Simulated assay, not measured.
Amino acid sequence: MPTLDDILEHIGDFDLFQKQVFFVLCFVSAAFSPIYVGVVFLGFTPEHRCLSPGVAEMSSRCGWSLEEELNYTVPEQGRHGESFSSQCRRYDVDWNTTGLSCINPLENSTGYGNRSSIPLTPCQDGWVYDSSGSSIVTEFNLVCEDSWKVDLFQSCVNAGFLLGSVYVGYIADRFGRKLCLIVTILVSATSGVLVAFAPSYLWMMIFRFLQGLVSKGSWAAGYILITEVVGPSHRKTVGILYQAAFSVGLLLLDGVAYAIPHWRWLQLTVTLPCFLFLLYYWCLPESPRWLISQKQNDKAMKIVDYIAKKNGKKLPACFQKINLEEEDGENLSPSFMDLVRTPQIRKHTFILMYNW
C-alpha cells in the first residue's frame, strides 16, 4: 500500500499548491508576533514624576522653564539612599501656598533651610509622564509600587501559552488541523479586540490570558498543517521559513508601533486584520494525513486529487482507487506518555523543554 509521501512524489511535494498554502499560513505566523512581544510597546514605561497639585499654576505664574520647574519641584535622584525617589516620591509641600518664592522656593519659603531636610511623600495624586503617546503603564499608572503589574500582564499571556500548548494539540488531533486553526484564530482575534476595549486592568488581564490560551495554538496548527502537506525533503525548510515569518512580523510591528503610539489603537491595528484569516475556511483544505489517521480515506483522496490538479499533475492510475495507509498501519490514540515513551523521543522532549 502506498503512503501519502509516495503519492506526493508524483503530484508534487512542494509545487504550486503547497507554495500557496505556505504563503497564506505565513501570515498567521507573522500575526503572532504582536501577541508574543507586544508588551514591549503596550507596556512601555516612559520617564515620569509625581503630580504635585499647584506646581503647574506656580510654574506659569513664575515663568519657569521645564528645566527650572523640574529643578525646583522634583526630588533629587536617590536622596538618602532612596532609589527612584524622583519618580516615586514628591516633596511634602503645599504648592498652592501664596507665599512661596519663585526663586528656590523650597529653600527660601518653606523654612527647612535645605532640600535634604524636606520630608517626602508618595505620589498620592498620580504621575506626570514625559510621553506624547499612551501605554497600559500611563493609563493604569503601573509604576513604582505597581510596576510589577506590567510583568504580570506578560505572565498572563505566557500562562495562556503554556496551557494552550497542552490542550490545543489534542484538539488538532481530535477535530482536525483546519477546524483547530479557524476556531483559535476567531477566539484570539476576538480576545485581542476585547483587550483594546478593556475598561480596567483586571479585565485587560483576563482577555490577555484568553488570547494567550488560543494564539499559540493557532500558530502551532498552521505549522502542523503546512508540514503535513509537503514532502519529507521540504519539511525542514518550510518549518524554518514559517518561523522566519514571525521575525518579519516583528519588523512590521516596530513600524506600526512607531506610527501609532497609543496602545489601544495599536492593539486594534494589529488585531483586526486577523479576522481576515477566517477566510482560510474556504481557502485551505484539511490535512490529508489527519484524514487518513481518522480512517477518512475517501475525503483524503478528494484532497489529493485537488492537490494534483492545482499542481498541474495527474494522479497515476495505480493510485486512483487505493486506500491510503500511514507507515505504522494503525491508528494509535496519542497520550502525554508518548513524549517520554522511548529513549530517543525522551531526548528530543527534554532538549525542546530546555530550549524553551
Rank of each mutant, 00 (worst) to 15 (best):
Q124L: 12
P119N: 11
N108R: 11
S109D: 01
E107V: 10
C123H: 07
P119G: 12
L100V: 04
Y112A: 02
C102F: 09
N96P: 00
P119Q: 10
Y112G: 02
C102I: 12
R90D: 01
C102E: 06
T97C: 11
C102M: 07
G113L: 07
C102T: 10
S109P: 01
L100W: 02
D92F: 04
P119H: 14
V93R: 00
L120V: 04
D125N: 11
T98Q: 13
D94I: 00
V93L: 07
I103R: 11
N108F: 08
S116A: 11
T98E: 15
N108W: 03
Q124A: 10
W95A: 00
G113P: 03
E107H: 06
N108A: 13
Q124W: 14
N96C: 02
Y91I: 02
C123M: 05
P119E: 09
Y91Q: 02
D92K: 12
L106C: 07
D92G: 03
N114Q: 14
P119I: 07
Q124Y: 13
S101R: 10
D92L: 09
T98G: 13
T110A: 01
N104Q: 14
D125Q: 08
D92Q: 09
I118M: 13
S117D: 15
Q124C: 08
I118D: 08
C123D: 05
D92T: 04
